[in-house]
Design a protein around this nucleic acid. Structure first.
Length: 494
RNA sequence: GCUUCCGUAGCUCAGUCGGUAGAGCAGCGGAUUCUUAAUCCGCGGGUCGAAGGUUCAAGUCCUUCCGGGAGUACCA
């Protein structure tokens, strides 16, 4: 517990206790938000207010000292004068930078014109045992910023704002769907079978039922059961889990929006996506759709471009037929892609990703995906090899995925069976019989949508890493015994 | 997983050719009634990520390991 704690701070804590001051009182006067005090400040000169927050940057002049107090809404200078603070003055040095305090005082200006609360009463709210990071540079070490986000949040300006923006984005996504009479629902995170995407799941086990379970990789199959049930318009914003690699745009747990609307097709969903972006541009970006991401400017104001999947493929791979396995394999080898043991449709899509995705600066709807890589989407009327599906790309990044939902139970069962035959780590080894049963009861034609909320937040806040929009990104655990254990063995061996 | 870079005081960072570990901030003592990265004088603070190796001598060179960043792969 004492490890790493500045001994001086502990000494001050004890000195405060000896002086009869509780360093962790149950309650203090919390006063009003600093932003509220600053609003119309000049009209409130000489009035008495109380504020509370974290203390920083003490500047001492003997009988006078200045500091700043910061709360969630803003920051205000405090002036401590000996003559106004008879009771507090003797203990002033025990209250230091990074401590949490409550201050009552008179509003005014300094000789230099700085807005200041001249303290008449100071109460310690909570003594900090660790010092704040360097006041000018803040906490720079990326690893420490993620491991100790609580420090990052108070020490680095802008971090709290970025997460406040994330909160606003999620709120406005909800407002948008709520305004369209969608119902927000919650479906199982623990699932006996996983589906709705292609990804390796995390596995776990329920003791009482003695049953293996998977953490969901998508909520899709449950939400569509609700469409069968007549809910007609539903959405869910929730965490999904994929046991895959970690990168600047991947975290093993991330937040997904999925929505489903009966009596709609994928063209209707395109309109919904454009409507959502228009809403976010208005509410989050203040009407201007321009964002800068990785030093490139994008305009998120709809309408968006549209391009057929197979047309894009043909442009970047002239003469190669997506459905001609030999031609695709030759092209893949030319691109130095892995070809061994990769099924034809997957390989053709690998070629698409290698040649087309980087060219999609967007925003652009890529539409009409091949059926073989779209097991839950409805086929085109005039070409069964292609489905009514689109993905939204911005900055070469896949932001959303949508399609006219497959509601043909027999076709769906067959596609599940095909997956079982080609089973890999990313598909369950059995058909989701209950889902097929649900479809057999009849699902209205419906359009569905999935959007990665974290990536949406990256784009809207200009963050280059997903870790900058996830409060606590997954990091490797530090084993506290890793080094000590080694030393211990070495010592006992001697 | 692979490639590459990084890890030095609580924080931000220097550390040359291998030759006695440094600065600023933070902290401690002192001065100071207008600072806002306050200033001035003095002081304390190190498992140089860990373990081995080379060497008369390792923060520095080599190997392995731990942790992290970036890129890449996986992520239909």
């Amino acid at each position: 517990m004492t490890d790493g704690i500045a001994g001086d701070r502990l000494d001050k804590l004890n000195a405060l206790r000896d002086a009869g001051i509780d360093p962790y009182p149950a309650r203090v006067a919390k006063g009003q938000p600093i932003a509220e005090v600053l609003d119309g400040f000049d009209d409130k000169i000489d009035s008495t207010v109380t504020i509370a927050g974290r203390l920083s940057q003490i500047r001492d002049f003997g009988k006078l000292r200045f500091s700043h107090l910061t709360d969630r809404t803003g920051s205000l200078q405090i002036g401590f004068e000996r003559d106004r603070l008879a009771e507090f003055w003797p203990t002033r040095k025990k209250i230091e930078s990074n401590d949490l305090i409550s201050v009552t005082g008179v509003l005014g200006h300094t000789k230099k014109g700085e807005r200041t609360i001249w303290a008449t009463e100071v109460t310690l709210a909570s003594k900090a045992l660790r010092p704040a990071p360097e006041k000018w540079h803040g906490l720079q070490d990326q690893e420490q910023r993620y491991r100790m986000r609580y420090v990052d949040l108070f020490a680095n300006p802008g971090v709290r704002e970025a997460f406040a923006t994330r909160s606003k984005i999620v709120r406005e996504v909800r407002n948008y769907f709520d305004s369209l009479d969608y119902l927000e629902v919650e479906t199982p995170i623990l699932q006996p079978l996983f589906g709705g995407a292609a990804a390796r799941p995390f596995t776990t086990h329920h003791n009482a039922l003695d049953m293996p379970l998977f953490l969901r990789i998508a909520p899709e199959l449950y939400l569509k059961r609700l469409i069968v049930g007549g809910m007609e318009r539903v959405y869910e914003i929730g965490r999904v889990f994929r046991n895959e690699g970690i990168s600047t745009r991947h975290n093993p747990e991330f937040t997904m929006l999925e929505s489903y609307e009966a009596w709609a097709d994928y063209k209707d969903i395109m309109d919904r996506v454009e409507g959502l972006f228009q809403h976010l541009v208005d509410k989050v970006l203040g009407g201007d759709g321009k964002v800068t991401f990785r030093e490139v400017e994008y305009d998120l104001k709809p309408p968006f471009q549209k391009a057929r999947y197979l047309d894009l493929f043909a442009e970047q791979n002239p003469g190669v037929d997506w459905f001609d396995h030999d031609a695709v394999t030759a092209r893949a080898k030319q691109l130095k892609l892995k070809t061994d043991g990769i099924e034809p449709a997957k390989l053709a899509n690998d070629v698409f990703e290698a040649t087309v995705e980087d060219t999609l600066s967007g925003p652009v709807f890529v539409h009409d995906y091949p059926t073989a890589i779209s097991p839950l989407a409805k086929r085109m009327v005039d070409d069964a090899r292609v489905t009514e599906r689109f993905e939204l790309f911005v900055a070469g990044m896949e932001l959303g995925n949508a399609f006219s939902e497959l509601n043909d139970a027999i076709d769906q069962e067959q596609r599940f069976k095909d997956q079982v035959v080609d089973k890999d780590d990313e598909t369950p080894g059995e058909v989701d019989v209950d889902y097929v049963t649900a479809l057999e009861f009849g699902m209205p034609p419906a359009g569905g949508l999935g959007i990665g909320i974290d990536r949406l937040c990256m784009l809207l806040t200009g963050s280059t890493s997903i870790r900058d929009v996830v409060l606590f990104p997954l990091l490797r655990r530090i084993d506290p015994n890793a080094n000590a254990g080694g030393d211990g063995e070495a010592n006992t061996a001697q």
